[in-house]
Design a binder for these strands. Structure first.
Length: 572
RNA sequence: GGCGUGGUAGCUCAGUUGGUUAGAGCGAACGACUCAUAAUCGUUAGGUCGGUGGUUCAAGUCCACCUCACGCCA
């Protein structure tokens, strides 16, 4: 038995994520977690909300709520939606947890001890009216280049020129609009990850089985320009983890917090601690997942994320871990995804373009989305969502190939033999051929799932479903019943067993439908079919079942058109 | 401007270290079946593999240049 630690990139707190975010990390991570559990392996699957930083503060202000309360509420909302999509996290934590406070401060302290923290004094724009320093992009003014009057301090959106906040003419706070700004000196901590460049480089080189997407991004950051640059890990904000050196005060850093990108990945570890606490487990229980000196040396750790998150996961977070000098677990495999586009453009949170997770669940059950998104996962390049493709895929794959298979065989049996697995007859060459085919295909499916080849797994699973229809079409029990009822009984018995077999194999993709299929077959045997012939005899003659409700209703043209219209512009 | 990733049948995508007539699903046409959510199964049609040039006995697969899309960075 292998032990799998699996984490999904943690979604930011300020709002509900869209389907592009879902397929980029949480959903494929869930697929893999469910598969590994099904194979009998020990799994700890973690995710959390990423709660610190200016965007959270501003979103809270817009909502007229204290930021802590806002985050607590949004965490609850995201957790509920995650349940709606059947994301099987062992724990859905929060980067604002006490555990993450302690760990983040601990790591900072260790890094400082090891000479990997630099204190740098720099100039930043301070807004007196807002009583805070302003990040570059929260300063607005007139672009000195093109005259656009809403240019941001980091870049002019109109002429795309890169700017410094001090370049702006008539600068003002994007938060309050105040022009009462001044440049002040402030001290910040930098993670000297450049000192670890060679070590990181060698480590990445050793990961020959990672997706090209992952290693090419990491390599670029390592070698571009002057190479890996040091990065600031603190900010002048109220909302965040107070800067401390372990449990000690950090002289000169009073009132400052760690920058989100530093504390967010540490939440992967803290989340395990939260999980243990929530379950009333001792510290050792989570440490055996994370500390190689405390039992984690046989853990296989896999991270899932969108390509925008790759630099943090391949460089910054490993730098934090390696730099601590402590035996924390480093990631073993890093699966990254490209973007999902929506109908010719990008999904956009700010513009409300595309489909958001809550809206998706509003119109269809989670299995529909899980199947389409996973079978079209943006693995080798960006992928595109269109309503036509969604309707066609879901109707064909789920309703026609899988759903209708369950329907046709259970209803056929009910009408000819009753709601009981029929006895009699023996298997002939057709049955042997089907079993041999499924044995091959199941092995290939497992191989693809093991390799996290999401699309190829879906493709193989679909072929496994289709094999059932091919078999029925070939042996035609409705015909043989007239001349040889015993043969028809054997054929029907095998086909009914396929329903349970499909339920087990399909569960990682479509957990609700799988559960309905198992319930319909009145079986609780969801064990992985290591032995395919045996698995196809799990329901013995005389075993009772019920014809399940229609598993997947089809998406009509009217639905499709209405939804395409509804999601074309801004969300309400 | 630099770098990265892509550009393969109408659509969505596979194509291992270069090697026999380039594959799958959907869609289309035709046929079979009638148990089933007008579902299923089979057959067929469809591609000068973004463009040009080069290396090679042989290139979708390597090299150069060009072009388009997307992304990251200056």
């Amino acid at each position: 038995m292998t032990r799998h630690l699996i984490t999904s990139a943690i979604p930011y707190i300020n709002g509900i994520k869209h389907l592009g975010n879902l397929i980029g990390s949480q959903l494929p991570a869930d697929l893999y977690a469910r598969y590994q559990r099904a194979r009998g392996n020990e799994v700890l699957f973690l995710c959390a909300t990423d709660e610190h930083g200016t965007p959270a503060e501003l979103a809270a202000a817009r909502a007229g709520k204290p930021v802590a309360q806002y985050c607590a509420e949004m965490h609850a909302v995201q957790a509920e939606i995650a349940r709606g999509f059947r994301l099987s996290f062992d724990h859905f934590g929060r980067s604002s947890s006490p555990q993450n406070h302690a760990l983040t401060q601990h790591f900072a302290g260790k890094l400082a001890e090891n000479g990997l923290i630099a204190e740098v004094t720099e100039s930043q724009v301070y807004s007196k009216a807002d009583g805070r320093f302003l990040p570059d992009r929260y300063i607005e003014g007139t672009c000195p280049n093109c005259g656009y009057d809403r240019a941001r301090g980091d870049q002019c959106e109109n002429c795309t020129k890169q700017l410094d906040p001090t370049d702006l003419i008539d600068p003002r706070s994007a938060i309050s609009g105040s022009t009462d700004l001044e440049v002040r000196e402030t001290k910040h901590l930098y993670l000297r990850q450049s000192k670890l460049k060679d070590e990181l480089d060698a480590w990445i080189d050793s990961k020959t089985d990672w997706p090209v997407l992952t290693t090419s991004i990491a390599k670029k950051w390592l070698h571009d320009g002057e190479g890996l640059r040091d990065r600031g890990i603190t900010r002048d904000l109220d909302w965040g983890i107070p800067v401390r050196k372990g449990t000690e005060e950090w002289p000169g850093m009073e009132g400052k917090v760690f920058y989100v990108w530093f504390d967010a990945p540490i939440e992967y570890i803290a989340c395990a601690a939260e999980w243990a606490e929530a379950g009333g487990l001792p510290e050792a229980d989570w440490q055996r997942w994370w500390r190689t000196d405390k039992g984690a040396d046989d853990v296989r750790y896999t991270q899932f994320m969108g390509k925008d998150n790759v630099p943090f996961h391949t460089l910054s977070f490993p730098a934090t871990i390696i730099g601590s000098g402590e035996p924390w677990k480093l990631v073993d495999h890093l699966k990254s995804f490209n973007y999902l586009n929506y109908d010719g453009g990008q999904f956009s949170t700010s513009q409300g373009r595309g489909i958001f997770m809550d809206q998706a669940l509003d119109i269809l059950p989670p299995d529909y989305w899980r199947w389409w998104l996973l079978s079209h996962a943006p693995e080798s390049s960006d992928a595109e969502f269109t309503w036509e493709n969604f309707q066609a895929s879901v109707n064909k794959d789920l309703a026609d190939v899988l759903g209708n298979f369950v329907s046709r065989i259970t209803k056929f049996c009910r009408s000819k033999f009753g709601e009981t697995v029929p006895d009699g007859g023996t298997f002939g060459p057709e049955e042997e051929a089907l079993i041999a085919d499924l044995t091959t295909r199941t092995a290939r499916y497992a191989e693809m799932m093991e390799a996290m080849e999401v699309r190829k797994s879906a493709q193989e699973l679909r072929a496994i479903w289709a094999a059932g229809n091919e078999y029925l079409q070939t042996v035609a029990p409705w015909s043989t019943f007239k001349t040889d009822p015993q043969a028809a009984a054997a054929q029907t018995r095998l086909a009914l067993n396929l329903v349970r077999f499909y339920a087990v194999l399909s569960a990682p993709f479509v957990p609700d439908a799988a559960a309905a299929m198992l319930a319909g077959m009145k079986s609780e045997d969801a064990s992985w079919p290591d032995d395919v012939p045996a698995a196809l005899a799990a329901l013995p003659p005389g075993h009772g079942f019920e014809v399940p409700e229609v598993l997947f209703a089809k998406i009509t043209d009217e639905n499709r058109e209405a939804w395409a219209e509804r999601f074309s512009g801004h969300r309400d």
